[in-house]
Structures are given as structure tokens and as C-alpha cells.
Design a protein around this nucleic acid. Structure first.
Lengths: 139, 139
DNA sequence: TTTCTAGTTTAGAATTATTATAAACTATAT
DNA sequence: ATATAGTTTATAATAATTCTAAACTAGAAA
């Protein structure tokens, strides 16, 4: 799954966001971004996978801090759901989701797969930041 | 705010969903549906308002149970958010939302205000149940 | 009308997700 | 090398929700 050693790139990326390139953050970067495909996760699943067989153990608090920092920095995107748990996406490009009500799984929909021909004017003084479509599916 | 005594209607509505018309459920029905305009709420706010000055006190557990039952029965709709708290909407018609990142408030967008000219085919064996658009806005 | 029973409500305990705390540690500027 | 601000950590605290089991009640049946 891991593509190559992009460590130097992550060091720069973190520095550019005023985040010190600690070994914990770098390990999480590698886990999240050294991949061909983007994916969805929760803090719970990230924590389990990161700490499964790693040399260094990263505390849960750090996982929370890092996910929050990466989201603020724009490396991750929080997903809209109707659950009481945060879901994150390593795909930060504008895109949409299928939400399967049976399996409760989210699948990406490429932004080119959906086209809008009419969009409302935002309230006065506000700008549209982005637009997401969630399509609920079931059997 | 309360339009009229729709009690009989609610009794029928509840019976048709195999929910006994208890005084707690009827009181919650009146609070939620005896209105001209639909609105958004959380269990926390519903609990506060329901128990502010009522004759009967409804326990928090019952508020949870009832909101869950009403959602399953299709009287309420859960809103998509990126928070760790459930938001509900008394507007169950297909519609969309503005999500203000500053104030963290949701506003309804009428269905007719958004038109899609391209929608993806759902995965094999699945049907589209509904489609929601969330437009994130900011200053 | 009374009785019975399954469905409902309730207070409080338990669980789950997240955030706060404060002490120990570390990256990096000087 | 040293100082220090930023970071990590274990643990406690908080918040939202679900569970539990006893008490209560709507409505069917006698």
C-alpha cells in the first residue's frame, strides 16, 4: 500500500502549516497519504491501525490532536453524516458521497459525476465555500 | 405558535405506525408539528423546551426514544452534519441546506432552488432513496 | 368494568466519543 | 549547549447517547 518514502515532502508540508514535523505526525502522514487511493476513517479506526504493529506507540490524544490539526491545515476533510462520530476523508478535492443505509458505508462519487444546473444565491454577506451532495442508497 | 388542536390527527398518525398514543408522545407531537414553519432541533434543545413549563415532565430517555421512533416512522429526518450530535428536521420533504461555518447554523433550501442535470447511477442492486445537497457558506 | 399483558416511561447507570489537564518530552532557534 | 515554545502523553473530565430493570399504562379480552 505504501508507495515510497515521501518523508521530506511531509516535513515541508507540515512546516508550511506551522506544524513541527514530529515523528508521530510523520508516521500519521505516511499512514494517511502514502497511498494510491484516498479513503475514509474515524479516529477509532485510525488509532487501531496506527498502533497495530508500529515501532512507536502514538497516544489516542495525539491521534485526536493530529487529525484536528490536519483538518484545519486542509490535509483532511470532515465528512457530513447523520451519526454521532466524526468521519474524515483523505480526499480533500470537491466530491460527493453515496451513503448506504444498510451497511452504513460511504463511497466517493467523483465531482464530474454530478452536475448542478441551478444553485441558490447564498444569504447576504456570505459566500459559497463548497457544495456537497450525499445520495442515500438502499436495497 | 400552536395552530390548533390536532390531537385526533396525531392519535391516528401514531396508531398507523404502531405507536401507542401516550400523553408523552402526543405532547411531543404537538410541540413539533403544531406549527406553520418547520424547524431544526437537537434532543438537548427539545428536552429543554418541552420541559420548560409543561404540566407533565417527560424524561430525557423518553425524548430520545420518541425522537428515534418518530424518525423511523418518517415523521422526522436526521440532518447531515460534521458534528458529534444529532440534528433533526421537522421538514421531511426532500430539501437541501446551507451550513454556515461561522455560526454553525443550518438553513433550509427549498427543493426547487437546486436542480441537478447529472446524477450517477447507484451501485448494482441499490436504489437511490434520496439526495441531499449541503452548501457550506462563510463570510 | 375489571383484569391482564405487552408496550411505554422513568431514573439512574453504563457506554462511547471527545476534550481538557498538567507533567514530561522534544524540535529548533539562539 | 541551552532555553523555550510546541508537542506528546496518561489520565481525568465532559458530553451525547444507550442500556437496564422496575413502575406504569393503553387497550384487548373476559
Amino acid at each position: 500500500m505504501i508507495i515510497s518514502d515521501n518523508l521530506k515532502m511531509y516535513v515541508q508540508k507540515l512546516r508550511s502549516s506551522n506544524l513541527r514535523p514530529t515523528k508521530q505526525r510523520l508516521k500519521i502522514c505516511q499512514f494517511l497519504f502514502d497511498r494510491k487511493k484516498t479513503f475514509h476513517f474515524t479516529v477509532e479506526t485510525l488509532n487501531k491501525k496506527i498502533n497495530k504493529n508500529g515501532a512507536i506507540k502514538i497516544s489516542l490524544a495525539t491521534i485526536y490532536n493530529t487529525v484536528e490539526a490536519f483538518t484545519s491545515a486542509g490535509y483532511l476533510k470532515e465528512i457530513l453524516t447523520s451519526k454521532n462520530k466524526s468521519y474524515y476523508d483523505t480526499n480533500i478535492k470537491s466530491h460527493h458521497h453515496f451513503y448506504d443505509e444498510g451497511s452504513k458505508e460511504l463511497t466517493d462519487i467523483h465531482y464530474s459525476q454530478i452536475k448542478l444546473s441551478k444553485v441558490p444565491v447564498p444569504p447576504k454577506g456570505k459566500k459559497i465555500k463548497n457544495l456537497e451532495v450525499v445520495i442515500r442508497i438502499q436495497k
